[in-house]
């Protein structure tokens, strides 16, 4: 019983430490905001952080794993490891509301619709993160990272990144 309590306490501390890791490509978001941090397990004193990639080829995953290990080390956990799981596949639906608000403030339009109902030429309605107008236009399906598309606002003329919905 006492040990179970200790484990849950350790888990909370480890979660706080791991959750503080920022996405290296979108530093306003933590991996908890993104939904990349799936779980923290504590067993026999070893902390296991479970993460999931946003895209198959996301080059940030190695960096994120390394930063989690560093964060856990700094928080005083001697034994830790990071495990990557693929199932269920990450979806933008897991991004927290707080995460979406942070993205908008940062100038990136957060994902809009629920994922998975994409028609071949289905158009998203994306609000401009600068002026809020819905009079926007997609410039390119692929942006500066795999998870973003390039858009522009026809009201305020500013270009912006849109975090794609998957």
């Amino acid at each position: 019983m006492a040990s179970a309590l200790r484990d849950s306490d350790l888990r909370d501390r480890a979660w706080t430490a791991a959750a503080s890791v920022a996405d290296p490509e979108i530093p306003v978001l933590s991996i908890a905001d993104l939904g990349v941090l799936r779980d923290i397990r504590v067993e026999n004193g070893t902390v296991e952080a479970v993460i999931t990639p946003t895209y198959s080829g996301c080059p940030a995953m190695n960096m994120i794993a390394l930063e989690i290990e560093l964060a856990l080390e700094k928080a005083g956990f001697a034994k830790h490891k990071v495990t990557t799981v693929l199932s269920p596949a990450w979806t933008t639906d897991w991004m927290t509301e707080q995460g979406k608000a942070k993205l908008r403030q940062y100038g990136i339009a957060p994902p809009v619709a629920k994922a998975g109902r994409r028609a071949l030429f289905g158009e998203d309605k994306v609000a401009c993160p600068h002026c809020g107008s819905n009079d926007t236009q997609r410039i390119s399906e692929f942006g500066s990272t795999a998870c973003k598309a390039l858009w522009r606002c026809k009201a305020c003329s500013e270009p912006f990144d849109y975090f794609k919905c998957i």
Binding site: P53, Y55, S56, V85, L86, S87, P88, A89, W90, T91, A115, G116, R118, L120, F121, E141, F142, K164, I166
Partner: peptide, 17 residues
């Protein structure tokens, strides 16, 4: 199945583009 679930979402963008 897990690899495919992710790949399917990615390929949706490829076919559209």
């Amino acid at each position: 199945a897990a690899i495919a679930a992710k790949a399917a979402k990615e390929m949706a963008y490829h076919v559209r583009h």
